[in-house]
Computed example of a mutant assay.
Amino acid sequence: MENWKVQNDDDAEFIIEKYNEKLSETNRYKLAIETKIKSLKDKLSKVNDEEREIIERRDSYLAEYFETIDEKFKKKSKTQEKYRLPSGSIVKKYPNPQFKRSEDKLLNWIKSNELNNYVEIKEAPKWGDLKKLTQVVNGQVIYKETGEIIEGIELIERSPVLEFKEE
């Protein structure tokens, strides 16, 4: 079969049928594996949910207890309070606030207060528009109007792709 080549439509049909049989088996096997993966992912999700519930239940008991502990036994900082136990520490964290910004409103405020040092101006090429004014000559991208080679663009040729589509 190594030296054999498709020489006519009958040979092409023979190859299609032969390899479709092989594809059928690999597709069946692939489906079986995907089913097994889905089953395992479902089991993992249930275990993760169970783990989350256990941790939440444990932490709710500890949070309730933490509030009853005398302040003199807690170690405090700006961002947290901590109470040490032999099995670990109960830590109550005070995270920094989250900032939800409206870029448009913030930009208007900055401009109205003349704080222009806090405005970022970003330049970017409009490649989609410029591309319409170019052509490829001998592997180079040329600006049609002047014939000048455009710097900053590398042309990467790609091989054609042959595919078979069933009808």
Score class of each variant (00 low, 15 high):
residue 4 W to I: 11
residue 5 K to P: 00
residue 6 V to D: 06
residue 6 V to K: 04
residue 11 D to N: 12
residue 11 D to K: 09
residue 13 E to P: 00
residue 14 F to T: 08
residue 16 I to C: 06
residue 17 E to R: 15
residue 17 E to N: 15
residue 18 K to C: 06
residue 21 E to C: 05
residue 21 E to H: 09
residue 26 T to C: 05
residue 28 R to S: 10
residue 28 R to D: 03
residue 29 Y to D: 12
residue 29 Y to T: 12
residue 29 Y to C: 07
residue 30 K to W: 02
residue 31 L to S: 13
residue 32 A to F: 03
residue 33 I to Q: 14
residue 35 T to A: 12
residue 36 K to M: 13
residue 37 I to M: 13
residue 38 K to N: 15
residue 39 S to G: 15
residue 39 S to V: 07
residue 39 S to T: 14
residue 40 L to H: 13
residue 40 L to T: 11
residue 41 K to H: 07
residue 41 K to D: 14
residue 42 D to S: 15
residue 47 V to L: 14
residue 47 V to K: 15
residue 47 V to A: 15
residue 53 E to P: 03
residue 54 I to T: 07
residue 54 I to W: 05
residue 57 R to I: 05
residue 59 D to L: 06
residue 60 S to F: 07
residue 61 Y to C: 04
residue 63 A to P: 03
residue 65 Y to Q: 10
residue 66 F to R: 02
residue 66 F to K: 03
residue 67 E to C: 10
residue 67 E to Q: 15
residue 69 I to W: 05
residue 69 I to G: 00
residue 72 K to V: 05
residue 73 F to T: 01
residue 73 F to S: 00
residue 76 K to R: 10
residue 77 S to I: 04
residue 77 S to D: 04
residue 79 T to M: 06
residue 80 Q to C: 01
residue 81 E to I: 06
residue 81 E to C: 00
residue 82 K to E: 02
residue 83 Y to Q: 04
residue 85 L to P: 03
residue 85 L to C: 02
residue 88 G to I: 02
residue 89 S to T: 04
residue 90 I to A: 02
residue 91 V to C: 02
residue 91 V to R: 03
residue 93 K to Y: 05
residue 95 P to C: 09
residue 98 Q to G: 06
residue 98 Q to P: 00
residue 99 F to T: 05
residue 99 F to V: 13
residue 100 K to Q: 10
residue 101 R to Q: 09
residue 101 R to K: 14
residue 101 R to G: 10
residue 102 S to H: 06
residue 106 L to Q: 11
residue 106 L to D: 14
residue 109 W to E: 13
residue 111 K to T: 01
residue 112 S to P: 02
residue 112 S to H: 09
residue 112 S to R: 14
residue 114 E to Q: 11
residue 114 E to S: 13
residue 118 Y to R: 11
residue 121 I to W: 02
residue 121 I to G: 03
residue 123 E to R: 13
residue 126 K to L: 11
residue 127 W to C: 07
residue 131 K to V: 10
residue 131 K to P: 06
residue 133 L to P: 03
residue 137 V to G: 02
residue 137 V to Q: 14
residue 138 N to P: 09
residue 139 G to R: 07
residue 140 Q to L: 08
residue 141 V to S: 06
residue 142 I to G: 05
residue 144 K to W: 04
residue 147 G to P: 04
residue 148 E to I: 01
residue 150 I to V: 14
residue 152 G to T: 07
residue 152 G to E: 07
residue 153 I to G: 11
residue 155 L to P: 05
residue 156 I to H: 13
residue 160 P to I: 09
residue 161 V to W: 00
residue 162 L to M: 08
residue 162 L to E: 08
residue 163 E to I: 00
residue 163 E to A: 10
residue 163 E to P: 00
residue 165 K to W: 00
